[in-house]
Amino acid sequence: MSLLSVKGLCKSFHAGSWSGKDHITRAVDDVSFDIEEGETLAIVGESGSGKSTTARIVMRLLAADAGRIALMGEDITYLKGKAMRNMRKHMQMVFQDPFASLNPRMRIVETVGEGLRVHAPEMNAKQRRERVIEVLEHCGTGVEALDRYPHQFSGGQRQRIGIARALAVSPRLLVLDEPVSALDVSVQAQILNLLSDLQNEQKLAYLFISHDLSVIKQVADRVAVMFAGRIVEQGNAEVIYASPKHPYTRALLDARPVEHPAQRKKPTDIAVRSEETVAKSGCAFRLRCPYAQEDCEAFDGALSTDDHAFACLHPLKAES
């Protein structure tokens, strides 16, 4: 039994416009994945690919239109009230912006201890304070932080506090939505190391959402690549980085800046052909895809069922 199992998740957003036309955006379209205990699944994609929406649906912060979410074997898709509250302590979220995700008017001890009030009502104030000290120390923040306010901390320290808040109720799964993208590179490394240590100690599972392939390479056991609301490739992280099957994954990998000035490429054609165009029918990526052929117009985007799954009629061959 997987710790988290997501099947056929769908979510559409409706946006009325001034012209009276009703736009429907399929933000998440038939997304399925499993996460085992102690494992990191990373979802990578560009803005608008649906990766954050997926995270929010898994956390039950948004309602799914269709699909099932099972946590520790229990279907939580439509759980309500007390039953849902009981399940929430097993999954917690860490947000992107360490400046916006902490309440500026609450002291750190209150912020980190808030979850305990709900999930461990039997604790008294003293016990809660002790637990808060324990998780803060685990996350590399000293006791002196307790009675301060968020504005007294730097971005990296705030993100540590955000992680401590999530860990206070001893969850099994952390959903991390771009946890390091607002941080400086030196601090980013500190936070990634912290996440890795916590995972090893507590057998935590991570659903790690990021747009940064280099960061994902550091943390992920498995990777799911999202494009236009669908998973287009999913599998073992090392395999996907070494030999991606989907042309979109290849394009994402190639778009990363070079690591050394000697590797600079020749400037390519700079005209915007279809920088952010998504095809309405067939394979959504086909308008940007250098390998697209006629049959891609009729492709339903179904993911293959292998361990290394991909949704492409003309997958890339492994590089020799």
């Binding site: 030196s186 601090v187 490394a189 500190q190 190391n193 890795s196 960061v215 090392e238 990363r256």
Partner: peptide, 24 residues
């Protein structure tokens, strides 16, 4: 050197990334 070393591109999975302790 430290700043270059802590780029995620430069590190490999499984080993702790070289971070710079403290802050600016």
């Amino acid at each position: 050197r430290a700043l270059m070393d802590c780029r995620p591109e430069a590190a490999s999975r499984g080993t702790p990334m070289p971070a710079i302790p403290g802050q600016v």
